[in-house]
Design a protein around this nucleic acid. Sequence first.
DNA 1: TTAGCACCTGATGTTTTCTTCAAGTGACGA
DNA 2: TCGTCACTTGAAGAAAACATCAGGTGCTAA
Lengths: 113, 113
Amino acid sequence: MTQPLYQVKAEFFRTLGHPARIRILELLAERDHAVHELLEQIEIEQSNLSQQLAVLRRAGLVSQQRAAGEVTYTLALPLVRDLLRTAREVLLDQVTGQGALQAALRDSLHESA
Amino acid sequence: MTQPLYQVKAEFFRTLGHPARIRILELLAERDHAVHELLEQIEIEQSNLSQQLAVLRRAGLVSQQRAAGEVTYTLALPLVRDLLRTAREVLLDQVTGQGALQAALRDSLHESA
DNA sequence: TTAGCACCTGATGTTTTCTTCAAGTGACGA
DNA sequence: TCGTCACTTGAAGAAAACATCAGGTGCTAA
């Protein structure tokens, strides 16, 4: 019944691996949002948004609460903010090519190049 | 031609969203590994491993170098180590239920509960 | 130059994920 | 109670990702 750890991790990352879901999480990282607010920011159909929110709910990444006739979503795991920030850093690193540069530098320490 | 940022991010996370690829990255986070070494640790077929390595290569997450008749893979972006660590923290947070607890605590600061 | 090891690639059938549509629920005001 | 607003759910076809197989490349050593 217990899944291997690397499978849980993979599933977790796959949950983040969707444009709409990333946008949702980034918006929620700023502040809580009602569904209709998310809908304004993200150009997908309402029912599709609901589906994606359901995926995030099932994964335990967001939680919802109903109030004043609207449903508001919250980031269930505050640490996700850090994860998103780190991911941005990785992508920045990749884009500026510093990744390759650092690797080359590191190699030059124990190669004769 | 230029893809929206959230799509790039989603693609990035999707690349991490596979059990074998996660294992590869975690092994490479420890130290460089030759393909046959990876094969010993991960229970998939050789050709499948190659496919997954190709995915990681295309995504720019790993790089390969040939030496002494074997191909060795390296983590191309050192920051990926941090990302994997943060992801572990998030999952730990989720599992211990501290996510919900922290959220409740945070809420209790500006609600009257 | 041939053999063999280490690894990569392309094609193919299968599973999974996505999007969309249609129908459904639940709270609230008229 | 009826309608409506805000949102969710289920089903189904389309698209993407996977695993596997067969064949291929490149290096090394005999």
